[in-house]
Design a binder for these strands. Structure first.
Length: 488
DNA sequence: AAAAAAC
């Protein structure tokens, strides 16, 4: 299978070849022909498997007939709008558009906040066919009349489930209301909760569901580890790990902007150079922090969830959850910064006893039981719920391991083994050699059969399992979207 | 219940 087999035009094939790609990834193979056909798409694929190109390439081809070398702004209306949840991700998607449009006379730009508006306004006034944007600044330009959206025939929501959650939905709703009803809509993400998926269905017209792996799946090339530790001991455990077992570049996720700054300062005081990225930093600081991390200058980057989604960092070997994310889906996205494009990665989570149920929710979503590791003097107990073997869904490890774990001292407060940097090493190694088992059935825990072609009516009416997010939080969302969708 | 996203 080649990109030419997917029906892409020579100008795009050349650009793909220039970029060094010869074979499409599964999501590209499945999504590109369908997007080219003009259908609406809900696309799900694991992190790091080439989702961006699976929509940028066919979007460019669909717009190619409208390409014009004319300098008249009227000849360059906005025909495709691509929305992303963070500025850095918008910039990354824009770079993909630039890469693949190099042999086509199509104009594109990237619109986001935190930088001067004037340069953006100037470019918009000259006319562009493709706009990649974050919602807030886009609406700002709409108000200033520097952009018109009534010619948009293609809409892409990257990280679609994030774009449709509580924080973003009012902006998205306003943007949708300015678009023509006759359009193609494309929603892409590595995760879709059931509630968000239903909401997404409302804004799509007979969508084709494309899923190359089951929803919410994580890469097999990532090794997950849990370190049970009291919250008060986390920073010292992290320093210990950074000086012993974490021997390469690492992205450390925290839960708040303040915590991000505080941990960064602490690491620096411990002679561990670290940089920080979060939403209260200036855009210049954010851009520089990400750039320094991408080019390898920064070994340790401490981040809020601003860096959780979509960012493509070459060969990142480690992700640390200093604090577990607020939703299980965010775990999938955070750890998806490592183990990309078939590379190996480690996802290390520091889990306090009070995060036990949070951990159980993550394990249920990704259908794995994450092996517990300990470091002498840093253990905490009660992180794994032993009283209920089903709490994490089917055990991801074999019975032998599960049995040893349940009667062993993995999460006991008693010091284990001899004093080493990582006293769990012997067992850790044996666990590392085993491939986690996964459910064979194509019917997932959410009741959706992934082997069947998708019909909107297949969406489970009443999930048999408890929803991952409280239904209370979703009702107002559905209400907000009601009336603006093409079906609603 | 925090973060993100406009000024």
């Amino acid at each position: 299978m080649t990109f030419a087999d997917l029906g892409l035009m020579p100008e795009l094939l050349r650009a793909v070849e220039d970029a060094g790609y010869s074979e499409p990834t599964p999501i590209q193979r499945d999504a590109i022909p369908i997007v080219l056909s003009g259908r609406d798409v809900m696309g799900g694929a694991q992190t790091g498997t080439g989702k961006t190109a699976s929509f940028t390439l066919p979007v460019l081809q669909r717009l190619a007939p409208h390409a014009s070398t004319s300098t008249s702004p009227a000849r360059h209306p906005v025909r495709a709008l691509i929305l992303a949840p963070t500025r850095e991700l918008a910039m990354q998607v824009y770079e993909s558009v630039l890469t693949y449009s190099r042999y086509l006379p199509l104009r594109a730009t990237c619109i986001y906040g935190g930088v001067d508006m004037r340069a953006q306004t100037q470019i918009l006034r000259e006319g562009v066919e493709i706009v990649v944007a974050t919602p807030g600044r886009l609406l700002d330009h709409v108000q200033q009349r520097s952009i018109q959206l009534n010619q948009v025939k293609m809409l892409v929501l990257d990280e679609a489930d994030r774009m449709l959650d509580m924080g973003f939905i009012p902006d998205i709703r306003r943007i949708l209301s300015m678009l023509p009803n006759q359009r193609q809509s494309l929603l892409f993400s590595a995760t879709f909760s059931n509630e968000i998926k239903k909401l997404a269905d409302q804004m799509l017209n007979e969508p084709q569901l494309i899923e190359v792996a089951r929803r919410n799946m994580v890469s097999e090339t990532i090794e997950h580890q849990v370190y049970p530790v009291e919250s008060s001991r986390k920073r010292d455990l992290l320093v210990h790990l950074l000086k012993t077992t974490i021997d390469a570049q690492v992205l450390v996720f925290v839960d708040t902007k303040f915590g991000c700054s505080r941990l960064t300062h602490y690491l620096n005081r411990c002679d561990i150079p670290a940089d920080a990225i979060h939403g209260d930093k200036s855009q210049q600081q954010r851009t520089e922090a990400l750039e320094g991390f991408k080019n390898g200058t920064t070994r340790v980057l401490v981040a809020t969830d601003v860096a959780a989604r979509g960012l493509d960092i070459d060969d990142l070997p480690y992700v640390v959850n200093y604090v577990l994310p607020n939703t299980s889906e965010d775990y999938v996205h955070r750890i998806g910064r490592t183990g990309r494009a078939g590379k190996k990665g480690k996802a290390i989570s520091l889990v306090a006893p009070e995060d036990r149920s949070n951990l159980a929710g993550i394990e249920k979503l990704i259908k794995l039981t994450i092996p517990v590791h300990t470091v002498e003097d840093f253990q905490a107990s009660g992180v794994r719920d032993h009283s209920d073997g089903a709490s994490a869904g089917r055990r991801g490890r074999n019975e032998d391991n599960a049995g040893r774990r349940s009667r062993g001292s993995d999460d006991s407060a008693a010091p284990r083994g001899r004093g080493g940097d990582d006293s769990a090493a012997p067992r850790g190694r044996s666990e590392r050699t085993r491939t986690p088992a996964r459910k064979k059935s194509t019917v997932a825990a959410d009741g959706f059969d992934y082997a069947k072609p998708y019909e909107a009516s297949d969406a489970p009416k009443a999930p048999s399992t408890k929803p991952d997010t409280p239904s209370r939080a979703n009702r107002p969302v559905a209400f907000l979207l009601g009336g603006v969708g093409r079906k609603g």
